[in-house]
Simulated assay, not measured.
Amino acid sequence: MSSSGAWDPAAYLRFAGERARPFLDLVSRVDVPSPGTVVDLGCGDGSTTALLADRWPAARVTGVDSSPEMLAAAPARPGLEFRLGDVRDWRAREPVDVLVCNAVLHWVPGHDRLLASWAEQLAPGGALAVQVPGNFRAPTHALLAALCRSPAWAQRLADVAPSPSAVLEPTGYLDVLTGAGLTADVWETTYLHVLSGEDPVLAWVRSTVLRPVLARLDGPAAAEFTAEYAAALRSAYPRRPDGSTVLPFRRLFAVGVRAGVSQA
């Protein structure tokens, strides 16, 4: 994950169930029966990495993340190893049978080149599985970008405004994976997350896209910015009569498989 400001595992895990669902949908499309080596790049707190170990108990499963705070919350159990590191610098020690990168690459500019590099590190029959949020034009991000670039905040925040170009469209990922010699399966899903509580959409983004923005501001300025953004979010995502709030969330998925038969 990105190292811009400290990650807060408790805040991120408030929506652990909703955040895990795309990971499970991604991994369900990985058809590698008995991998020997499984790597989870940008593993966060390791809770989803543990799911990989559950699915492939005979594999050596390694999670890599750049956040010491997240790794400190990772589970300690046999068959799991966690390493501190930046996904941009990661290199496989041996060919990898399953390489997973979930909800990370939108923090990495130019990650199409990184994906091509990872594809080269797959074993024959190995799979590269990637999921990224596809909601950079949704109100959560568009409103935040507009506020960061507004006259009151642009001098401090314009360069950290979320950009629609942070991820490719599905055809872009198809082109990257097939260009790297993989057989590709690419799709998208929009989840309707039904949230509860006060300003739940703000709570959702606070631990993700809002985090690097608030890291630029001191306490009073952060409170002022958050209040203005929260009001905009309440208008864009109104509370329903039953008290819940619906957050549509588009996700993009890509699984690429290298030709050959796994030796695992």
Score class of each variant (00 low, 15 high):
Arg77Asp: 12
Thr49Phe: 07
Val100Cys: 05
Asp65Cys: 02
Pro57Thr: 12
Gly42His: 06
Gln121Cys: 04
Val130Gly: 01
Leu41Lys: 06
Met70Ser: 01
Pro78Ala: 11
Leu99Trp: 03
Pro78Cys: 08
Pro35Trp: 01
Val104Glu: 03
Trp56Phe: 15
Leu52Asp: 10
Pro22Cys: 06
His106Ala: 14
Val64Met: 12
Gln121Glu: 14
Pro68Thr: 02
Leu41Ala: 12
Asp86Val: 11
Pro124Lys: 07
Phe82His: 08
Leu80Ser: 07
Arg60Val: 13
Trp107Arg: 10
Asn102Glu: 03
Arg137Pro: 00
Ala127Gln: 02
Gly17Trp: 02
Gln121Thr: 07
Ala74Phe: 04
Pro22Tyr: 11
Asp112Ala: 15
Pro35Leu: 04
Trp90Asp: 06
Arg14Phe: 04
Leu24Asn: 11
Pro78His: 01
Ala129Pro: 01
Gln131Cys: 12
Val87Trp: 10
Arg60Leu: 12
Ala123Cys: 03
Leu122Asp: 05
Ala138Tyr: 14
Ala74Thr: 01
Gly46Asp: 07
Val30Tyr: 00
Asn135Phe: 05
Leu115Phe: 01
Asp86Leu: 10
Val64Asn: 08
Ser66His: 06
Thr140Glu: 12
Phe15Lys: 10
Ala103Val: 10
Ser28Gly: 11
Val104Phe: 03
Arg60Glu: 15
Gly42Ser: 04
Thr37Ala: 12
Gly46Val: 07
Ala16His: 12
Thr48Val: 14
Glu94Asp: 09
Leu13Ser: 14
Pro68Val: 12
Asp45Gly: 13
Ala127Met: 07
Asp97Glu: 10
Glu94Asn: 03
Gly125Lys: 11
Leu115Ser: 08
Val38Gln: 08
Leu51Ser: 10
Ala16Ile: 12
Val98Lys: 01
Val98Glu: 00
Leu99Thr: 03
Leu122Lys: 08
Leu80Asn: 08
Asp40Cys: 09
Asp40Met: 11
Ala123Gly: 00
Arg14Cys: 10
Arg60Ala: 15
Pro139His: 08
Ala123Trp: 00
Leu122Ile: 09
Met70Phe: 03
Leu13Arg: 15
Ala92Asp: 05
Pro33Lys: 04
Val64Ile: 15
